[in-house]
């Protein structure tokens, strides 16, 4: 079913957006930057008769520090995240992920909430948000709920978001000062490219130089974006060495195949993923780069 024409309404608050989305006389979809919805529209895949514009809802447009967390509004654009001093200072991983998206034009429109809610398998903010333990705060007609981003996206283009709800913002804990992070992405070209594979990584060492914390989250890799705990287990409590990062990379490939089975892309990804994991761990734990 494709609908020929549709209506438009602009919401001025989350509550109003949810009320409009719940209106049973319309098939409504939330519209933010339009970088996914307008493509569907062009392809004639219109599954709504009204768009509820949430791109200018004030409480969804801010980046603020609240105690030990940064709160990023869902309608903040990728470009705004890249340029924001709080993000650059505390969450460079997220800035790098957002910078890797599309083109200047796309980054000026596309929003972080849209990237999560659209839940593309290749969404570049997902591995970064999961790696940073981000929690989405969702407004529904029954009130507000907080859900870790890893549980919001349950599969390619599938979310656990209730009907007629909107993500208001993301609460992202500020990692400890000694944490280092990395984001790498492989696409067919440097810009305007869909991720073939990406990797978000974060970690820090204890006073004895052993790995106190490590998080390894591949993107465009598994149906649900998740930490690769088997690769992490290789590193945890150890002094990072060349041999160890290689082992972690291999453990990552084994875990990927255990989750996805052998797919058409596996011959490529089982080589590329360990290389990305190694590269990220080298950067995070200060080992020399290998080219």
């Amino acid at each position: 079913m494709s609908i020929k024409h549709f209506d438009y309404v602009r919401a001025s608050s989350c509550a109003e957006a949810v009320a409009l989305l719940s209106d049973p006389t319309h098939i409504s979809r939330p519209l933010a930057g339009g970088t996914d919805l307008m493509v569907l529209r062009h392809k004639g895949e219109v599954q709504w008769d009204r768009l509820v514009d949430i791109s200018q809802v004030p409480e969804m447009r801010t980046i603020v520090q609240q105690g030990e967390a940064i709160v990023v509004g869902a309608a903040v654009t990728h470009a705004e995240i890249v340029e924001h001093p709080l993000i650059q200072r505390y969450l460079p991983l997220l800035a790098d992920a957002c910078h890797s998206i599309g083109s200047p034009q796309i980054r000026n429109r596309g929003t972080i909430g849209g990237n999560v809610a659209n839940a593309a398998a290749c969404a570049d903010t997902l591995p970064a948000l999961v790696c940073l333990d981000a929690v989405a705060r969702i407004v529904t007609k029954d009130g507000e709920m907080a859900v870790p981003v890893k549980d919001v996206v349950v599969g390619p283009n599938r979310t656990s978001l209730p009907a007629a709800s909107v993500i208001r913002d993301f609460v992202i804990p500020i990692p400890p000062a000694q944490a280092r992070m990395a984001f790498f992405k492989i696409g067919r070209r440097q810009v305007q490219s869909i991720s073939r594979l990406s990797l978000a990584c974060l970690g820090w060492l204890d006073a004895d130089g052993r790995v106190a914390e490590v998080r390894i989250v591949p993107g465009a890799c598994t149906p649900q974006t998740q930490r690769f705990d088997q690769a992490e287990a290789v590193m945890l409590g150890q002094v990072p060495t060349e041999e160890l990062v290689r082992k972690a990379g291999q453990a990552g490939a084994v875990q990927m195949i255990a989750i996805t089975g052998r797919r058409w892309s596996t011959p490529y990804k089982e080589l590329a993923l360990p290389a990305l994991i190694e590269r990220a761990l080298r950067k995070v734990f200060g080992l020399p780069e290998v080219r």
Binding site: R10, G33, G34, M38, P104, Q105, I106, N108, R109
Partner: peptide, 15 residues
């Protein structure tokens, strides 16, 4: 659009 470069094909007119 408000000082930023955008693709006008991805902006819905009422926005």
């Amino acid at each position: 659009l408000d000082g930023e470069v955008v693709n006008s094909c991805l902006v819905l007119a009422p926005q």
